[in-house]
Design a protein around this nucleic acid. Structure first.
Lengths: 228, 228
DNA sequence: GGGACTTTGAGAACGATTGCACAAGCGCGG
DNA sequence: CCGCGCTTGTGCAATCGTTCTCAAAGTCCC
């Protein structure tokens, strides 16, 4: 069982980074890692690694470091990655299609087990080895497959309704790719990924690098400005 | 020109939300918005909106609110959205393909003007109305199109090399979708979107909702836990 | 067995972000 | 022209997150 301790949100967001770094380390048959090395692999600093890991428990050995296999096990347990999660994607447009075929999910324990779309012309078509179900079938699909996690890959206008339907169907974790604010009841987790917003944030800092000029290339002065 | 004032990173990350909310508001021919209303539309609270906007300047009118058009103009200027940004995507796999066809970018001022891939069998193929260029052509492509922003949509193993090449070619802002840590020189902005990590974070909180049980559905107790 | 060296774990200082509370400013109606 | 109601802008306190620092605890070598 995961430790009952409260783990800060910022730490939770970094655990997957450590997990990934540890997987790479384990592949190289390395027995232990120091916080220093783990930090390099995860792209953070060592103090943060130690503090983050200390929230999970005292799993390191002073003078030695962390046992790779053991720490992997602890983190995967904490993240709930000891078993596969079935996932449903709603919206089989450009993005939904790509997400359905994205191998990165399966490789990390997330199985896309169902695709759903509101468009009747898409229902029944095959994507990979799945066939698209109707939006109205969502409750049955979710129940049958034991789905707790749903992905919204619809246009912005449909996002809130889809979220509501996902929640009604019993989904309690939602990843929203639609560029819209959606709200969910307490007890349902929601994360959002907005691709255009990421570019807009880059645009902000880019804008400030070449003051007054419309972003065309040339000898760009290397400002000391970074992006977190 | 953008105000010289330093704007906190957290605020910068929210400006695009306000921008989107204001666009919707403007569509409805509403002349002014209060911070309260803007907060609702952007999914944050009113105090935060006011504080964020105050970093840009005193653009509101007490007792009235913010002029929608004027504020839109100010924010788009600050974000550098007064002109289109040409963008190159490196890696034309599943994800690169979807990103190339994603309409959300064009709609917000980001034009995908070039696609690049290291695979010789992909070079020359057409995706939408673009043809895929070779990785070695990157410097020419970047220079010709005046590209400052690059998107990495390659497998993890290629990410660092691609980032290096983008930087060499003159790109100073990078959005990385590959599940790998990449480092860039000072002066180059880097943001990352890792799809699997988002799911893993959801998995963490999901895991804690149904203690001891392997995530299957049923009568899930509504915990008061949320995800930021 | 003991001393030098390494690395963790945690306390404390620091910095960033959030949320509260309220004065100041503006429009409107009388 | 004045007072009232509304909404912004901001000082302040609280919270959250990061970084520094160092004692404690282990290994390794002699």
């Amino acid at each position: 069982m995961p430790s009952a301790r409260r783990i800060p949100e910022a730490t939770v967001a970094r655990l997957p980074l450590y997990y990934r770094a540890l997987l790479e380390t384990a592949d190289q048959h390395v027995g232990t890692v120091s916080s220093e090395r783990l930090a390099t692999l995860a792209g953070v600093n060592a103090a943060k690694v130690r503090k983050d890991l200390s929230y999970l428990g005292s799993y390191g050995t002073r003078g030695v470091g962390y046992d790779v296999e053991f720490l992997l096990h602890q983190i995967s347990r904490e993240l709930g990655l000891t078993h596969d999660w079935p996932v449903v994607i709603v919206g089989v447009g450009n993005l939904g299609h790509a997400l359905a075929n994205y191998r990165g999910f399966g490789a990390r324990g997330f199985q896309i087990v169902a695709l759903v779309d509101a468009d009747p012309t898409k229902v029944g078509t095959r994507v990979g080895d799945l066939s698209v179900a109707a939006l109205d079938d969502l409750p049955r699909v979710v129940a049958d497959c034991g789905i707790a996690i749903g992905i919204i890959a619809t246009p912005a206008g449909a996002a809130q309704e889809v979220a509501d339907r996902l929640v009604d169907a019993g989904v309690t974790s939602i990843l929203n790719f639609a560029p819209a604010v959606v709200s969910v009841p307490t007890g349902v987790s929601l994360r959002k990924v907005d691709l255009a917003i990421e570019l807009q944030i880059l645009s902000f800092y880019q804008q400030r690098k070449v003051p007054g000029v419309d972003g065309q290339r040339g000898d760009v002065p290397r400002a000391a400005e970074g992006v977190g």
